[in-house]
Amino acid sequence: MNQLLLIVTIAGSRVALPAAEVEGVVELEALIDVPRAPAHIAGLSALRSRVLTVVDCRLSLELEPAPNARDGLLEGAVVEVDGHHYALLVDAVEDVVDALGDPAPVRAAMGAGWQRVSRGMVETDEGPLLLVDVAALVAGPDRAAAAA
């Protein structure tokens, strides 16, 4: 596998996003609330005259929200899913690395949220990382429950 991966931290866990699915990394200053949006939608933000739906990755994974999640600048990875642009809120953006092989099945117990977004473990020079399905993060737990 010759794939570039973006290493990010979500809820203290280092994971990988397929770099080909990431349009860029941004710092968001302000979020506009969206009434009646699913819980994992943090709000809307503007980026170069384009509206982004902002996804709180912690809430998408059914984890506790970050303390002071709306204070200061928020880091996000901009992705496009089904023609719509999203910013995935992450704790930190680290680096872009090469995958050293194809994703392998995860051989450890994970929470339901992590299991839902997992594409498997992928080996990198940084060590093994969970490869995350961007579309599953965007869909959130509500969509997954409705499909079941």
Rank of each mutant, 00 (worst) to 15 (best):
G83E: 15
L74T: 08
A112W: 02
Q3M: 12
V55H: 00
R14I: 03
A30K: 07
G24N: 11
L63V: 06
A99V: 13
A19F: 05
Y86P: 03
S60G: 14
I41S: 09
L6Y: 10
E94W: 11
R48V: 07
T124L: 07
Q3F: 00
G83V: 10
E123L: 15
L52S: 07
Q115G: 05
G72T: 06
A146T: 08
L31P: 03
S60R: 03
A104N: 09
T53G: 12
A69Y: 04
R58H: 05
D133W: 02
L73N: 11
R143K: 06
P65V: 04
H85T: 04
L61A: 06
P105Q: 13
L59S: 05
G113A: 14
A135F: 09
L17Y: 08
I32F: 14
V93L: 10
D82Y: 06
V134A: 01
A104W: 08
I41Q: 05
P18N: 11
L31G: 08
A16L: 13
R36C: 13
D95Y: 07
A69L: 14
S49R: 15
V8H: 04
V132S: 11
L129E: 01
S45H: 03
V8R: 04
L47A: 12
A139I: 10
A30D: 13
W114E: 04
G83T: 10
H40Y: 01
Q115D: 15
E27M: 12
R14K: 09
L63G: 03
L89H: 04
T9C: 07
R50S: 13
N68M: 14
V34K: 07
E62F: 00
P35V: 11
A144S: 13
Q115H: 05
L17K: 00
A46P: 00
S60W: 02
A20E: 12
A109Q: 04
L131S: 01
L5H: 04
L5C: 15
I10R: 02
P141I: 11
L4D: 14
L6F: 04
V138D: 00
I10Y: 06
V132T: 10
H84L: 05
V90G: 05
G120P: 00
V122F: 12
H85E: 01
R143D: 05
A145Q: 15
S118T: 10
V51M: 15
A11K: 04
I32S: 09
C57R: 07
A16D: 08
A147T: 02
P103M: 06
V138W: 01
R48F: 06
N2V: 03
L5V: 13
E123W: 06
P18A: 09
L131C: 02
V134Q: 01
S45G: 09
